[in-house]
């Protein structure tokens, strides 16, 4: 089956043509490819904070959304906190799972694979002896992260595995959690 014909029948809700066009445009003007993603965080009380996400910079200009996204972060009651939101590390898990899943959908669209159901569960192991300063040999962050996909789609298992593998290869959050990043924290 010719590819162009197949593409028209697969509907994963991803506008692959637009993505490919964007890629071509940004290849021609790399300066437009420079983005800055932003969030703002305000301490409320205890471990509770309230974060908002609205504008970002990209395509050579400040960009604004129609709405502001809001996120509460806190710690659960077993940490003597009030549990007013997911913990920050759970937001990292959300970020990784949603990034990989978006990638799965986009790549499936590009590869003419019709998805019906895609679910991911993600779990991070953490030894609290790290952040509590009990054992200096234990890192603060996750000891490991496991993501498990269940995919119902018109494709062979190998094709689905290839889909998930390519999604990791092109995922920003996967790169962020698997490779080091220089971080600057300043007090204004």
């Amino acid at each position: 089956m010719p590819m162009a014909a197949a593409a028209s029948t697969v509907k994963n809700g991803v506008n692959v043509e637009a993505l490919i066009a964007a890629r071509e445009a940004l290849t021609a003007t790399p300066v437009a490819a420079q983005f800055k993603w932003r969030a703002a965080c305000e301490w409320k009380n205890g471990t509770h904070s309230h974060s908002t996400v609205e504008g970002f910079y990209g395509l050579g200009a400040e960009q604004h959304r129609k709405r502001t996204f809001k996120f509460d972060a806190d710690h659960p009651e077993v940490f003597a906190s009030e549990d007013k939101g997911a913990t920050p590390v759970e937001y990292v898990l959300v970020g990784l799972a949603s990034c990989l899943t978006a990638g799965v959908a986009a790549i499936a669209q590009h590869r003419n694979i019709q998805l019906r159901v895609v679910t991911a569960t993600i779990e991070g192991d953490m030894d609290l002896q790290g952040i509590l300063g009990i054992d200096s040999d234990v890192r603060n962050g996750f000891g490991g992260i496991k993501v498990s996909y269940k995919i119902d789609a018109d494709a062979k298992r190998e094709d689905l595995e290839a889909l998930v593998a390519q999604s990791q290869k092109r995922s920003a959050v996967y790169d962020i959690v698997t490779n080091p990043t220089n971080v600057v924290v300043e007090v204004l």
Partner: peptide
């Protein structure tokens, strides 16, 4: 360079926390 965080595929990876 930052703290040696890992070695993967023959590449040494350094933490981004040098400044801190």
């Amino acid at each position: 360079v930052g703290r040696l965080a890992g070695i993967a595929n023959g590449k040494a990876q350094f933490a981004g926390s040098l400044r801190n």
